[in-house]
Structure formats: C-alpha cells, structure tokens
C-alpha cells in the first residue's frame, strides 16, 4: 500500500510527535509514504475569508496527487475533510470544475477528477489495512489501560459528504483503540467539538469547551484521552495547563495521538513515538505493563 502523505500545517508547526509516531506505525504496517512534491495549505483556514481561494488551494494539491497517480492520506482531519470535499464537489459539479480549472490553467495544472481518493489516517487503518492485519501487529497488548476517545469533527462530519462511521455514535476509532488491548470508555458529550478553530478569535469558549470534555473524560475513570487530530491535540494537551488555570481545576489527563497508543502496543518505546513531547506527561500510564 502506497500513499501520498499530506502533512498539513499544524503538524510541522507544533505537533511533530503525531508525525513521528505515525511514520513508525505505518511502516510497521507495510504502508509506503511518498512525500508531496510541492506543498501548499489545503485551504481550510482561508475558507472563511474566500471560498474560491480555498477551492483553488485544495485543487492544486489534488492536481499534484493526480499527476503522481497516488491516493492522498492525511493525518489532519481538517486537511482530509477539505481535500475530500473539493475532490468530490469538482467531480460532481461540472460548472464548478470549469470555474476552478480556469484558475488551474493559469498555473499549468488541470483537475481531471475520479483519479485519486483522499483518506484520513483512521479511514486508511480501518478500511485499507483492516482490523485483522492491525491485530496481527500487536505485540505488547495494553491490557488494563482505560482510555477515552475524541474523534475530531472532520473525520466524520458532515455525514452526508463524508459517509464514514456514524458521527452521532462513532465506533470505528473505539474499535481501533480496543485492538491495542486498552479499554475505550464512553463519556458525556463525547462527540462534541473542542472549539480549536476559533481560538484566534475568542479563546474563552474553546478553553471552557475543552475543559468540560476533560472533566467528563476524568469522571468516567479514563487514564488518557486519544485523539487523531493535531488541532484537537493542541487544545487538549498543549492548552491543558491554561485550561486548568482558567477553570481553577486540575485535570492531569495525558492526551496521546492514536498512533502513539498503537505504537506502544506494537512494542515501540515511548521515545521512538515522541511521547516526551507531550505537555501532560504520560509516565503514569506507561508503567502499567
């Protein structure tokens, strides 16, 4: 299996532990990653100010993937959501395709459509690798560990465009977590957004939102929270001390990328998976076995 890796902006900026651990576990699952020949942001951050620019930035990346003839895999749900949505919209809407290809012509590219797929890591693991092969790669089951999950909205929503899992009752990430041997607990308001995208406009709302989620995660006895989005991770991990100050409440919930949890279960050492980069240290849960 071979994919074009679309790394996005948040991961190289702040969250390289996600990339480090993802590359380790994907290699172990015999997935070959090809780097993007050139990169520009998927366009999502600029959708609020200019929808057409988002379409063209996304399409430029899709054109490069078409030239390579490789499906795109992203680690960031925002990139996956955007590229997937544009890939689908241009294929289905001839007028839109014409408009965007008019822009692409100016930079000597053309979107053809129907050539490549865009998938988020979770989709690749569940659909392409499959649970059976995933289970076979587990060497060090994390028996006894209790965690909770936070999916990242754009992995699942809007359901009518994504068509993966059920955003009201998501089970796929839970299954992926449980094949590592850990138990994945339900908690209140599990499917709610962390609010990260608006932190530059208003920080109070996301801090309170994430604080409520951390409180609920802790209340059910989860020892860690598992994420699959670098932006969510930034909210839950990097901002956790700040949330604790704002709410005058102590959480101390370690937040691991799913690829770190999987990597531990595959037998990689914490250092190989970038666990030392976590703001909320995971040392407590690492002594379990």
């Amino acid at each position: 299996m071979k994919y074009l890796l679309f790394l996005g902006c948040v991961i190289p900026y702040r969250i390289s532990s996600y990339e480090i651990s993802a590359r380790k576990v994907l290699e172990k699952l015999s997935i070959e990653l090809v780097e993007m020949p050139e990169f520009n942001c998927c366009g999502l951050p600029l959708d609020p100010v200019n929808h057409e620019l988002m379409l063209t930035l996304a399409t430029r990346n899709l054109c490069l993937a078409e030239q390579k003839g490789l499906d795109i895999m992203t680690l960031c749900p925002g990139c996956a959501g955007t590229l997937r949505k544009v890939n689908k919209a241009l294929r289905e809407d001839k007028k839109l395709k014409e408009l965007v290809n008019g822009f692409m012509q100016e930079i000597d590219l053309e979107f053809r459509g129907g050539i490549v797929k865009v998938k988020h890591l979770v989709q690749v693991l569940a659909e392409d690798v499959g649970f059976k092969r995933m289970r076979e790669a587990i060497q060090n089951p994390l028996t006894g560990l209790k965690v909770a999950e936070h999916n990242g909205c754009h992995v699942l929503r809007p359901a009518k465009y994504v068509g993966f899992d059920d955003p009201e009752n998501p089970v796929i990430l839970k299954k992926l977590i449980e094949l590592t041997g850990a138990l994945c607990l339900d908690y209140m308001y599990e499917t709610e957004c962390c609010g990260a995208p608006i932190i530059g406009v208003n920080d109070k709302i996301p801090l309170h939102l994430t604080g409520e989620k951390l409180r609920n995660v802790k209340a059910v006895g989860a020892q860690a929270l598992i994420t699959v989005c670098p932006f969510c991770h930034m909210m839950f991990d990097l901002n956790q001390p700040r949330i604790e100050r704002v709410l005058s409440e102590k959480f101390g919930v370690p937040v691991l990328h799913y690829t770190q949890l999987l990597g531990l279960a595959m037998g990689f050492s914490p250092d190989e998976l970038g666990l030392e980069q976590l703001r909320v240290k995971a040392s407590k849960i690492l002594n379990l076995n």
Partner: peptide, 20 residues
C-alpha cells in the same frame, strides 16, 4: 524526519490574485 515539501510561491501568488 524528511525535509518539509517546499511551496511554489509563484503559483500561490497567482491563485491569490485570481481569486481577488
């Protein structure tokens, strides 16, 4: 980790202009 892929700033600038 592999070096980050470079951006084609000329293309990006064109897209900014085209979309106003």
């Amino acid at each position: 980790l592999p070096p980050l892929p470079k951006a084609n700033l000329e293309d990006i600038s064109k897209l900014f202009n085209l979309t106003h």
